[in-house]
Design a protein around this nucleic acid. Structure first.
Lengths: 345, 345
DNA sequence: TTGTAAGCGTTATCAT
DNA sequence: ATGATAACGCTTACAA
């Protein structure tokens, strides 16, 4: 029984139909099938119908590879992200997907922690299968690497420190957002404002730190290295920093976390220690991820249009693909806005 | 100036090198290049070196489409998800990506709200460009549709009510998880336990509802339709249900939300109304998304190994691709575990 | 309006 | 160990 003909049990795997099968069934040439199915040339109505029927019957789906070989278009866009963790990324992918779907493109997704080789590998693996690439590399060195890697495939960078003049790059106003938030805290009378920083090599993190420092300077407050806690954008890091902040004598009266995940981790630490927020310590984050308004107390944050960031990046890319985007902006900076909630009224 | 030779300004787009260019540069035939680069045949060491150097110099990257045309493998796997919203999906994509990356596969990602046409379209768009497909369709009808759609491409369903015997499907123990959580609430003495349901057509939601009802029955508590609030897995829906629950006289003493996002929305509503959690009302969720432990009070939940769900699905798929997976399980049910935190001690 | 055939870039088969 | 060359499935001149 196990040695019966392979097709005996299930009439499965009935070799995917090719354009030739359709042509034969519709009794026309493959060229006509192609024309009929793609509306790419004159075909008589009844012929077209016959072809369409045959294609449907055979469940014909054109082989993308073969097609892209001749058209040199893949209808696919590559997305390379540093990691896929947390709500920030689900939001940005959402935005990217929305825009791509609207334009009829598929998405080839890859993540690469910031090891050079890994990114390079992912990039090579994508090459030839994508018409363009959205790359998020907040890590400095990567951006440099790719700014040079130009071989026709349009690239759009998200939140990446790319210096090259003609690179297409979309960023958010990291410095401005951080500056405004810390300024707000200063205005509320806070004298000791701590920051939970992002990873050293991360460009966004660096900019937010700069905004924090500038706001302190402008507010006439001294910089204090002990108030600058290290972090890496995870809840755990925020939690640790939160605990560390409490050990300080006197402890800060406000904590600005470089992203919401860390702010939420810090909130959790403070709650555990019975510290009132915002009563004893005010807390603020950055990104305004969807969940920020639902934590307790609701988290003040710097609103970043995350989904829009992905969407705009995609639009930029699509613009570069359809034609030479001479007029189009190559550098877009999305504004951020302050969202004050109960965690730092 | 604008009418100069197209290549005058930037030496850009230097036509991507093909295997022929490499062959010419290394002064060998294309066959040898292929063998050298893929280790797919005998090549003298120095020849190999010469070829590799030439390939590097020309920044040669093989054209995926051409390759897949002849090998009939794409090294790409399709992922079709119902939506990309929230931490649940970022986690599941993470798991999928991890497993795929390990096996050297690329990911073609698509989302489709549950309109039949949309899913069908996404599927067709993927066909021929993927070696296999992971499909999440908690919507009943979709699963039916795809169970029939068998043409060789292996499919693995996640959390989908597929009845077909030989379909590969991986699910979590929705009923058991919900049952345990509600049982826990019953044991704690709650008499009026509300549920915030998921969407009607959603299979997970239906199973969780069933678990809730069975636990009530077994606990000797009456079912009360007024305690079954509608929802759709979003924070907003949870928020609304939370408010609605407070209007009830007497109001429930515990709320079980069919997922964490809704539980968090409900928490937020209760907080706004100054209702103590768990003092006045206990709250529990489902999924145990990473952020659950960080909300306030920390959320009790039914832990689902989300990333693992994606990872296992991928493994199942990879197994089906490499060879006929006769021995392998076609149905996997991942267990859930209770995580009791402060929101329902 | 339709058909024939060349060619896209790669791998695989067969000579050499 | 290497080289010609025939596929793979499709689109697109060009011919009819």
């Amino acid at each position: 029984m196990s040695t019966r003909s392979p097709r005996s049990r299930h009439p499965e795997a009935p070799r995917q139909a090719t354009i030739r099968d359709v042509a034969r069934a519709a009794r026309v040439s493959v060229a006509t099938v192609s024309r009929a199915l793609n509306d790419s040339g004159p075909v008589r109505d009844d012929t077209r119908r016959r072809v369409r029927d045959a294609a449907d019957n055979l469940r014909f789906t054109p082989h993308g590879g073969a097609r892209s070989l001749i058209t040199s278009r893949t209808n696919t866009l590559g997305v390379l992200l540093p990691d896929l963790y947390g709500e920030f990324f689900s939001e940005i992918i959402r935005g990217i997907d929305r825009s791509a779907q609207r334009a009829g493109y598929q998405l080839l997704l890859s993540s690469a922690r910031n090891a050079h080789d890994e990114v390079h590998g992912a990039f090579r693996a994508m090459y030839g299968r994508v018409d363009g690439l959205v790359l998020m590399a907040p890590d400095v060195e990567l951006a440099e690497l790719f700014a040079q890697h130009r071989d026709g495939t349009p690239i759009v960078f998200i939140n990446s420190p790319v210096t090259s003049e003609d690179a297409r790059v979309i960023t958010i106003d990291n410095h401005g957002g951080a500056y405004q938030m810390v300024k707000h805290l200063v205005r509320k009378g806070h004298q000791r404002i701590a920051i939970i920083r992002g990873a050293e090599s991360n460009h966004d993190a660096a900019e937010r730190l700069r905004g924090y420092r500038d706001a302190l300077d402008d507010g006439g407050l001294p910089r204090d290295p002990r108030l600058e806690f290290h972090g890496d954008f995870t809840e755990t890091a925020g939690y640790r920093a939160g605990r560390a902040a409490l050990k300080l004598q006197p402890h800060p009266t406000a904590i600005f976390a470089a992203n919401d995940a860390m702010a939420i981790g810090a909130l959790s630490a403070l709650r555990e220690e019975g510290v009132a927020v915002p009563g004893a310590i005010a807390v603020a984050g950055f990104d305004d991820i969807p969940i920020a308004r639902y934590v307790s107390p609701p988290l003040s944050s710097v609103h970043v249009p995350i989904a829009q960031l992905g969407e705009r990046a995609m639009d930029l890319l699509l613009g570069a693909i359809v034609g030479p985007d001479h007029g189009a902006a190559r550098r877009v900076v999305l504004p951020t806005t302050l969202v004050i909630r109960k965690s730092s009224p």
